[in-house]
Amino acid sequence: MTEYLVQASNLRKSFGNTHAVNDVSLQIPAGEIYGLVGSDGAGKTTTMRLLVGALLPDGGEVSVCGYNVLKQTEQARSTIGYLSQRFSMYEDLTVLENIRFFAEVRGLSSTEWLPRSLEILEFVGLEKFKDRRAGQLSGGMKQKLGLASALVTRPRLLLLDEPTTGVDPVTRQDFWQLVIKLVAASPSQSGQGEGGVSVIISTPYMDEASRCHRVGFMKNGQIIAEDTPSNLRKRLNGRVVELRGAPLDVLRQSARADADVEDVQAFGDRLHLRVADGKADTVLKRLKKEIVNAGGHVDELRSVPPGLEDVFIALSDHEYASTF
């Protein structure tokens, strides 16, 4: 039996004339890292705030860990850890004092909070810094303190709203290793089924989306596609071709002129072409000749595994012109 930690159906929330969340349904099983992926204003944060009960939906139902968020708000919240985009910490308190504060606000007794805090600080790698003032932490360490504060109540569901915005790749990599470990170490992943932790993480970045078990692409308040990263990529299997050569203008024009090329995307030193289903081989043969005839040369022309970025663009292609 799959245990679902989040069951939300047909959630709606409008602010004035803006349909921030427009008919969103989510089912998140225990042990899953789910990515809400989309631009600013797509509805990611509003969705999260509906899940934690910080906002009342205009319509729809939501339950977390079996508790109805609208009717059993306190019980539901006690199962949730939430790291918001602008989470606050007390800069003149130490790391440990900050966690204690969050723990006590959430009702942890004095015998509980200390051993648990120390355990979590060790998990996020901040144990050596427990007596340092939060204001003196680096950006990456502050972020880990935020994560530790969200984890001190041992939530089953962890909501992370763009946790790595403005964070460099090395720090981001560390943070992700922690999140994945947290989920991987929880019981459902070790085959016991019950008690697993789930994470919902929002991001506009495809490199982060690709680390999730499942992603939902959000646009204009709706989830326009939802699947595992590998299944999403499969939708374009064999249809993305990488082209390198010179001059770029000739490459672009030749590619655009090819009847089986649906889309041409410049990526710095190369082009990505999306070709019609089953036409990759034809295009590979034909295009090379065309480019040479047009006075260009080709360094590399090959099928590449599609990226999530290719998929997202293909999904929203028909509305491309109007989306910016």
Binding site: V37, G38, S39, D40, A42, T165, G166, P204, M206, K219, Q265, A266, E309, F312, I313, S316, Y320, T323, F324
Partner: peptide, 14 residues
């Protein structure tokens, strides 16, 4: 292009 989705990022880069 921080904070935008791939379609908007792409339009910006074009």
């Amino acid at each position: 292009t921080s904070g935008v989705d791939p379609t908007a990022r792409r339009a910006f880069w074009d």
